[in-house]
Amino acid sequence: MDLGTINPILLVASLMVSATPILLAAIGEMVVEKSGVLNLGVEGMMITGAVVGFAVAVNTGSPGLGFAAAALASALLSLSFGVLTQFLLSNQVATGLGLTLVGLGLSSLIGKPYEGMKSPTLPDLPLPLLADMPVIGPMLFQHDLMVYLSIALVAAVWAGLKFTRAGLILRAVGESHDAAHALGYKVVRIRLMAIFFGGACSGLGGAYLSLVRVPQWTEGMTAGAGWIALAIVVFASWKPWRVLIGAYLFGGVTVLQLNLQAAGTRLPVEYLSMSPYLITILVLVIISARGYHGAPASLGRPFHASH
């Protein structure tokens, strides 16, 4: 085994790329859950974003338009979940699973003509000055635009939840919808907006897969990334920066295990391929053993104004 062949700078750089789709979807889902709604349809929204983003980018030649269309399409799809759970008071877990089915089916119907095509992809965008720094530069500042945007989004969500009135209202709705309603907030409307935002983020994550990370369209290409994103939100105890840590940790272990294999380590491959999941569990156990749980109190409960 020659671990010397693993270059830590490149490792960090590629884990950031590898984690970005999960990060985008997870930060959106975190906002949804903060509002007290559990949307298990992330996988379905991601793959819809992947196919729509790809199709639009191919037809217009612009990856930027692709991302925008992906966000919009997934957000619209998520509204079907919103209408069902918020107006028709359907069960959120089941509706989310239905959304996944719909997304998977819809995407492969839309995607048929785009199989095997190549699309324009995002160029790397080294940040001036920062990118030239030794070690840190190639690690953190020579990525494409979406990597920076995803981190900016985490920061924005953190600041938004913590410092703005909108964030306060969102959290209030998630903690106790009855109290928020009594205070005169439009619970349903706020939740719909959160769901819309979550859908848009999932769409961006999916489009990042099909336009940058892979880049191509193939049926079922998200291959469970949406589920990992859901798990990351729980892992993060509904805290934005921990979502970032969780996504990078998961992406990091995934990339690292492949690097260890490539370096010819003696560790059995089956344990290496389990490692991202086992390590996520382990870290979560350590966090929870310290006694902190941050689930919004109203998470997953239906709200009806005339209780």
Binding site: N7, A223, L258, Q261
Partner: peptide, 20 residues
């Protein structure tokens, strides 16, 4: 890779090999 088909994982595997 323990998969026949997982584009994201295949991309990661290729990158790991190239980086090394």
């Amino acid at each position: 890779a323990y998969t026949w088909f997982d584009p994201a994982k295949e991309a990661d595997a290729a990158n790991a090999l190239i980086e090394q």
